[in-house]
Amino acid sequence: MKLMAFGLGYSAKAVLRRLSPEQAVGTTRSAAKAAALAPLAEMRLFDGSPEAAEALKPALSGVTHLLVSIAPAEGQDGGDRVLPVLAEALAAEKSLVSIAYLSTVGVYGDHDGAWVDETSECRPRSARSLARVKAENEWLSFGEKAGVPVAVLRLSGIYGPGRNGLVNLAEGSARRLVKPGQVFNRIHVEDIAAGVERVFATGAGGLFNITDDEPAPPQDVVAYAAELMGVEPPPEQDFETADLSPMARSFYGENKRVANLKSKSELGLAYAYPDYRTAFARMWAEGTWR
């Protein structure tokens, strides 16, 4: 396997660690990050510009698997950052057999707390979600034209080592915001990596929700983390009067329960962390939460 990972961030790093491909090439926009990530992959700088794309083309030779984890550009001309400058070069690589695009359940928008699956209507509101829908469609279209299966993995709220409610409590940044009826799905980063592994193993294409089994109120997750740590949880705060950034507030404007049955039935994905209690208890017991 020669894996090219566009955007070697939190989730993509977990994928590379799980797969340990014979050859791995990763991209980042920062020279400092590239140096730090060098033990994990052969690093290249890529910012979506034609110049960076041209410099990257030799590294595409012989690529078999593609992982795309770059946020799309927003605005009127928004969409995927890779395809406008590298679609032709990627299509020419006949060694390419599978593509995984990491998206977000944010594309579904608001469904008033109802369950959604891969057949549900996308109702994106925010600029970032509109851009995601466009990028998803661009990759699916590319796959059809190039004859390569593209799996779009719609991820819920990502957590894992160093990024979770236990860390927030330890650092004093945890908050228990309460908005009646509000729930969120979550996904442990190792289950994302397992999902990509199953995509590559099966050669699957199409849309897949990669998410846990239990959408839950965010304040309950904080309270459970505090219980595990043996500390008092932060006081509950009314969402309506809480001091929040526009970005943070926008997440609470979308309420839905996301189903994951297709990922289990078609990818054969067995979730190691099916709900937040299982995950937090295991991370706390193993000391893998930091």
Rank of each mutant, 00 (worst) to 15 (best):
K2L: 06
L3N: 06
Y10Q: 06
S11R: 12
K13W: 00
A14R: 10
G26T: 01
T27I: 06
R29A: 12
A32M: 06
A36P: 00
A36E: 15
A38Y: 00
A38P: 01
P39L: 04
L40P: 03
E42W: 00
P50F: 02
P58A: 06
G62P: 10
G62S: 07
V63E: 02
H65F: 03
L66A: 12
V68P: 08
A71R: 13
P72F: 06
A73K: 15
D77A: 15
L83R: 14
L83I: 11
V85K: 14
L86D: 05
A87L: 11
A89R: 11
A91M: 08
A92V: 09
K94R: 15
I99C: 14
G106Q: 07
Y108K: 03
A114C: 08
T119C: 09
S120P: 01
R123F: 06
R123Y: 08
R125V: 15
R128I: 09
K134D: 00
A135C: 13
A135K: 12
A135P: 12
G143A: 11
G143C: 06
K145F: 03
P149A: 10
V150C: 08
S156W: 09
Y159Q: 08
P161K: 10
G165V: 01
V167F: 04
L169A: 02
E171H: 13
G172A: 09
S173H: 08
R175Q: 13
Q182E: 09
N185P: 07
E190M: 13
G195I: 06
E197K: 07
V199G: 02
V199M: 02
F200D: 06
L207C: 03
F208P: 02
T211Q: 12
D212V: 04
D213G: 08
D213C: 08
P215H: 08
A216I: 15
M229W: 05
V231H: 13
P235C: 00
E236F: 02
Q237P: 01
F239Y: 15
E240S: 14
D243L: 11
S250I: 00
F251H: 09
V258C: 13
A259L: 14
N260C: 14
L261D: 12
L261H: 14
S263V: 06
L267N: 09
A270N: 05
A272M: 02
P274Q: 06
D275E: 11
D275F: 09
R277C: 07
T278C: 12
R290D: 07
